[in-house]
Amino acid sequence: MLRAENICCTLKNGRKILDDVSFQLQKGEICGIIGPNGAGKTTLMKIIAGVLKPSGGSVKVEGCLINQMKRRETARKIAYLPQTTHAVPCSVYDSVLIGRKPYMTWHPKQEDRSMAEDVMDELGIAHMKDKCVTELSGGEFQKILIARALVQNAEVLMLDEPINHLDVKNQVEIMETAKSITERRNLTTLIVLHDLNLAVRYADKILLLDNGSTLYYGNKCEMDEAHLSSAYKIPIEIKSINKKSYVIY
């Protein structure tokens, strides 16, 4: 279980990036983090992943305080995939295997290699094992990064804008992958999204941020159009068609 309490982040000049953000997620749940540009989504992700220290508040995974853990220990509990702009020229296998870094002393052991191979099988990417990452399509590349995060064997999975620059088919495929692994592995998953329809479709809970504050946190079904319109400053409606919710703007 993931619990974030009263997270604050203030710059030296006094500007507040995050102001008293709190939420709690259970195992097997997906939380979609949405909000306009500059709302503080990525900063919140960095703080939860332990790569950025908050000005105040705490993050706990299974009752353990992230702030007091070493980076290595945090990486065993939280698999964090930041926004990725470039691919490193290395084989698919190596870029998945690197997910075992938090468990390595010098070099990967047989156990690490087997785990990487198992995850590649699970995500159906084993056939491109020897390909160079730079030769992959955007969707394939994102799958490789998700495989790397899974190899970390963490309880929390965090994806920061994983479907940016992908076509509709690949967007759906990546979101389906995220949903199925969350269910299968009983993970707690946080995904930063700009596509409100995908957020409503795949997330169980929604965290709507605006100017560093929580505008809404709760079940996706209870989210009000007014919250969205207020955050994005444009009229937004939520329609239900065939028992499915659609965000129209």
Partner: peptide, 15 residues
């Protein structure tokens, strides 16, 4: 190898 992917990626991998 992890740092090659960028500081944030490496930090996320426990480096």
């Amino acid at each position: 190898n992890a740092i090659q992917w960028g500081e944030l990626h490496a930090a996320g991998l426990g480096v």
